[in-house]
C-alpha cells in the first residue's frame, strides 16, 4: 500500500515537473495569434495588412470597441468574422483557443481599448 503511494507520488512528480505550465496571459495569446493582423500594439497595422482587402479592427479605438459587449467579442474571436456578418478575413479560433483563453483575450482587448486593468 505504502509502496504504491510512493510510486504514484513519483509518477506525479515526474509528470508535473514535465508539464509545468508558464502562466498564460491575454497579452501573450494576443502576441502569438492576433498581432500578425491587428498589430503588435493593437492599432490595426499588423505585418499582414498590406495584402488584406478588409482592414483588421483597430483595437485601440475606444469609441468603436466600447460599443461591443464582452459577449460580442467572445463570439467573434471564437467563431470568426462570418459569425457576426463581418469579413471572413477575421478567422475563427475555436480549435486553437479554449473558452478560458478567449476570456483572457477579451480582458486584454479591454486593456488595449480602454485601459481597463486585466483581471
Amino acid at each position: 500500500m505504502n509502496k504504491l503511494a510512493i510510486v504514484l507520488v513519483t509518477l506525479a512528480c515526474v509528470f508535473s515537473s514535465h508539464s509545468q505550465a508558464e502562466p498564460m496571459s491575454g497579452k501573450k495569446l494576443y502576441q502569438a495569434y492576433c498581432a500578425q493582423c491587428h498589430g503588435m500594439e493593437g492599432d490595426g497595422y499588423g505585418i499582414n495588412v498590406e495584402f488584406m482587402e478588409v482592414l483588421p479592427r483597430d483595437h485601440t479605438d475606444t469609441e468603436e470597441m466600447s460599443s461591443r459587449t464582452d459577449e460580442d467579442l467572445f463570439k467573434v474571436i471564437k467563431f470568426g468574422g462570418k459569425s457576426i456578418d463581418k469579413s471572413v478575413l477575421m478567422p475563427n479560433w475555436d480549435s486553437i483557443l479554449t473558452d478560458d483563453e478567449i476570456d483572457l483575450l477579451v480582458s486584454h482587448l479591454r486593456v488595449l481599448c480602454c485601459e481597463i486593468e486585466e483581471e
Partner: peptide
C-alpha cells in the same frame, strides 16, 4: 517573417 513572426517584427509609424 520567420517561423514566429513576433520575433522579427518591429513597430514603426508606418505600421508593423
Amino acid at each position: 517573417a520567420g517561423v514566429y513572426y513576433g520575433e522579427h517584427t518591429v513597430v514603426t509609424d508606418e505600421g508593423d
